[in-house]
Design a protein around this nucleic acid. Structure first.
Length: 569
DNA sequence: GCCGTTTTCGGCCCGACTGTTTTCAGTCG
């Protein structure tokens, strides 16, 4: 799977061309890179079929370059460009406030090629002598270097959540604020956020800006204007706030929620209909007459579109679907009747089976499924064939003590050789079998795909657990040909897990959508190891929504009898 | 370099903030 590699090269080409003041090409390369990055299919397969130019944004010339790279593993055009610039662009581009124009000037005048060179030039105070630069720019760049060196990783959705709630609560209580909302990638339900974006309606913007930039956890004020400010909290999280008037709130929300790619498409669509769209509203191109902007719904309606939920706004076909009134009726947390994949003290959980089941009942769920570890996973006390009887006996006792359905099951290791450590016959005694990869994760895509698919073909399993095995900010996904895995899962009626554990969030939304397009079905889980983890299934709902899922696609939303039927081996 | 209910040529989203400027370029989202 070379999609990522190809996309990265195209992005780098775009950056170099931008540095060379080439017009328009950079955005063409970027658009193609973006499209290739979000493909569900292996680009090599598309190339084999001769369909590279079918990818939106990929035309004759980029297709030829992609083909050359796939065929030979090299791209002389890219090598030539790299030689021309002699600059470590990837490194310098990370520094905030440093773009192509400044990088070019720094190279021309001071021979700065990388962060080290920039640091030296700053220490000699040569940077502030350049035209267009000054003392402050030099200081900002030095701080930027420090920031890159100690760069915090992306923030998990759950760690941003309490900050969002606290800010909303505080600001909504101020009498001079009429409305306050969170936008950005957080609003789109992404698994991680780079920063947080807020939007407020107020007749006294200066007061809002003052309160915002002096919040108690602010470590640094990055920008402060009359209507827009940015701060960084002591934990490194950047927060932006913009104040708008009531009439602009919808258009401003739309702009701030993004994604940028969605906004660009929406603005193009507006232009094609004789309107221009900005954060201030929808206007006619001729005469700049205000049409609407108070609510997002009005804007979408005026553009001839169904309302598009924030989670769908990734420019992955939602605008075309909204034009045809074919958007999905997305699931929500209240549609979820129960949770799969929960651990207890029988393996590495910290609460008993009974405590977990009682908590689920308290959360007004209708079922819980226990799936303690079975197999050589790296924990001290996994289930074994010997202990399985006692475990099932204990589950039977719990069933008599709670008023919800309790499913028995295991999370069993997919072994290196594509088998499971328990024969199919014994698996059939369990209600829910989840098979997951935990060990021997460094394999080629071919081997790993074979390993996972072989288990799906040979054993009576119900759910494929955390399919990519990624851990956010810690571990990349395993090598896997996902399309093949999805096809196999579909063929054998195996549900794909959407694991809501905050640092897993696996499958991610974009893959969920690809699998859904292939006809797969899904099971939401919390991967709870304690009673406090049970609510994590709602994070899985975010991913399900980002993957365009409806109730019919998600096992947890079905009636109990339908679920039991689907789990029969 | 890509693309087409204006177009096979001539467009390509839009505006705020900062720092350096005496009116604007660069960067960012």
């Amino acid at each position: 799977m070379k999609n990522g590699e190809v996309a990265k090269i195209l992005y780098n080409i775009a950056d170099i061309l931008e540095l060379q003041n080439v017009q328009w090409k950079p955005q063409a390369y970027r658009k193609a890179a973006q499209a290739i990055e979000s493909l569900s299919e292996d680009i090599e397969d598309i190339w084999q079929r001769g369909e590279l130019e079918e990818i939106p944004g990929v035309g004759e010339h980029i297709a030829a370059k992609v083909e050359e790279f796939l065929k030979t593993g090299k791209l002389p055009y890219y090598e030539k460009l790299k030689k021309e610039v002699k600059i470590n662009l990837e490194e310098l581009n990370q520094i905030p406030s440093l773009g192509p124009k400044k990088i070019k000037l720094l190279y021309r005048k001071l021979n700065v090629k990388d962060i080290k060179g920039l640091e030296e030039a700053i220490q000699k105070h040569n940077v502030q002598k350049l035209a267009g630069f000054g003392e402050k720019t030099e200081k900002t760049l030095l701080e930027g270097i420090q920031f890159v060196k100690t760069k915090p990783q992306r923030f998990l959705y759950v760690s941003a959540l309490p900050i969002v709630n606290s800010i909303l609560k505080t600001f909504r209580a101020y009498p001079f604020i009429h409305q306050m909302e969170v936008a950005g990638s957080f609003r789109r339900g992404k698994e991680t956020v780079g920063d947080l974006d807020f939007l407020a309606v107020s007749a006294q913007p200066e007061k809002v800006m003052h309160q915002f930039t002096t919040m108690k956890d602010v470590k640094e004020v990055l920008a402060k204007g009359t209507t827009k400010s940015s701060v960084r909290l002591s934990n490194g999280l950047q927060i932006d706030l913009r104040v708008v008037n009531d009439k602009e709130f919808g258009s401003a929300m739309n702009y701030f929620i993004g994604s940028k790619e969605h906004n660009v498409e929406l603005r193009k669509l507006a232009l094609s209909k004789g309107y221009t769209l900005s954060e201030y509203g929808l206007f006619t191109v001729k005469g700049k007459k205000w049409i609407t902007g108070k609510t997002e719904s009005e804007i979408y309606q005026k553009l001839g579109l169904q309302f598009i939920e924030p989670e769908l706004r990734e420019n992955h076909g939602e605008i075309a679907a909204a034009q045809k009134k074919k958007l999905p009726d997305l699931i929500s947390s209240k549609d979820v009747h129960g949770i799969f994949h929960n651990h207890s003290t029988w393996s590495d959980g910290s609460n008993s089976l009974l405590e977990m089941a009682q908590k689920a009942e308290e959360l007004e769920l209708k079922f819980i499924s226990f799936n303690d570890h079975f197999g050589p996973v790296g924990i001290t006390k996994p289930l074994t064939e010997k202990r399985l009887t006692g475990y099932l006996h204990e589950i039977e006792k719990v069933r008599k003590k709670v008023g919800i359905r309790v499913f028995s099951g295991v999370e069993i290791d997919i072994l290196k050789d594509g088998t499971l450590p328990l024969p199919a016959k014994r698996l059939k005694e369990l209600d829910v079998v989840i098979a997951s990869v935990h060990l021997a994760t460094k394999m080629s895509a071919v081997e790993m795909t074979k390993r996972v698919c072989s288990v799906m073909e040979k054993y009576p399993i119900d759910i494929l657990g955390h399919p990519t095995d990624r851990v956010l900010n810690e571990r990349p996904p395993i090598n896997l040909n996902l399309d093949v895995v999805f096809e196999t899962a579909k063929k054998h009626n195996i549900f794909l897990e959407i694991n809501g554990s905050p640092s897993r969030m696996d499958l991610p939304g974009e893959h969920v959508k690809n699998a859904r397009d292939l006809g797969c079905q899904f099971a939401l889980s919390a991967d709870a190891h304690a009673i406090g983890h049970l609510p994590y299934y709602s994070l899985g709902v975010n991913m399900a929504r980002r993957g365009w899922l409806e109730k019919k696609d998600v096992l947890n939303c079905w009636t109990l009898s339908k679920i039991e039927n689907a789990l029969k081996k």
